[in-house]
């Protein structure tokens, strides 16, 4: 008798679980299908063209282009450079991500002020962003390159350790950390599949596809933008552009993704 009840309950539970799983799978399949449909035709290409032009355009008090900018592999070397960022730059005395490196180059090579260099770093409906175009092009020049965010300089190692710490740092009114959503595999927020960024296998395809064209926003968004928006949803204050926490978290994710293959700009919801 008892056995029968248990067996009946178990079959009910399994049945319900099966239906839920089937429903989840179909939802995720349709999102994947949508992404595949758009993948051959990523609007980010328009940003790449603009970024390439902007790289060679002379401007600022020094009337210079960015072509001599050192992205880590030597002056003017763009191919593959993005796959090895962030990294430590001796001239800046700090670890910089691509965007902060571009800002440094605009200041040093073109003679712009920091405010001028950082202007429109995230585009709005009315103002396009030169930096979004630049990151789209520079990222595209690393397509196929192996992700190898360096961990040789002590400051690079330190940035990783701090980034790892911050990833798990629960705070604010909701007790949220990055790890709240991104340290378990196979979960979703609403319909959005959440990558477990503590798992290299899941971190690789994510790190490989930022910057990305965001369909919901109609523009290319950078990693700085993505992390700033994650922090907003964690109920944290607005982060400064180029904030240390953003660089540190980017280093953490990049090292987690070591060995992945760059495929940015990606295409995201």
């Amino acid at each position: 008798m008892n056995k029968n009840i248990v067996a009946a309950a178990a079959s009910l539970l399994l049945g319900a679980g099966g239906i839920a799983l089937a429903q989840d799978a179909s939802v995720e399949d349709s999102i994947a299908a949508y992404r595949e449909m758009l993948a051959d035709d990523n609007p980010a290409e328009l940003w790449e063209i603009k970024g390439r032009e902007f790289w060679s355009k002379k401007r600022g008090p020094k009337n210079a282009s960015l072509e001599a900018c050192n992205l880590g592999l030597g002056s003017g070397m763009v191919k593959g450079a993005f796959a090895q960022l962030p990294r430590y730059f001796a001239d800046a005395g700090r670890v910089q991500d691509l965007e902060m490196r571009l800002v440094s180059c605009m200041i040093d090579l073109q003679g712009l002020s920091r405010a001028e260099a950082e202007k429109n770093h995230f585009s709005t409906d009315n103002d396009a962003s030169d930096i979004e175009a630049l990151v789209a092009w520079i990222a595209s020049e690393s397509k196929g390159a192996v992700i190898a965010v360096p961990q040789t300089h002590p400051k690079e190692k330190e940035a990783y350790a701090i980034g790892e710490k911050l990833f798990h740092f629960r705070t604010g009114p909701y007790d949220f950390a990055c790890s709240t959503c991104h340290s378990t595999s196979g979960t979703r927020i609403r319909l959005q599949v959440l990558p477990n960024l503590t798992e290299p296998a899941e971190a690789k395809p994510i790190f490989a596809t930022w910057p990305a064209y965001r369909v919901s926003q109609g523009t290319v968004r950078s990693m700085e933008n993505r992390i700033t928006d994650c922090l907003r949803q964690q109920r944290m204050p607005l982060a400064d552009y180029g904030a240390d926490v953003i660089t540190d978290l980017t280093v953490y994710m990049g090292v987690q993704a070591a060995g992945g293959q760059m495929a940015a700009p990606g295409l995201k919801r």
């Binding site: 911050l166 705070t171 604010g172 204050p237 607005l238 400064d240 904030a243």
Partner: peptide, 22 residues
């Protein structure tokens, strides 16, 4: 160092919002 990174990363936030980092 993580605490220092946090306290230097949100400079436009009001003291009330800064409290969220504690």
């Amino acid at each position: 160092k993580a605490a220092a990174a946090l306290s230097s990363s949100f400079t436009s936030a009001s003291p009330e919002w800064q409290q969220r980092l504690v």
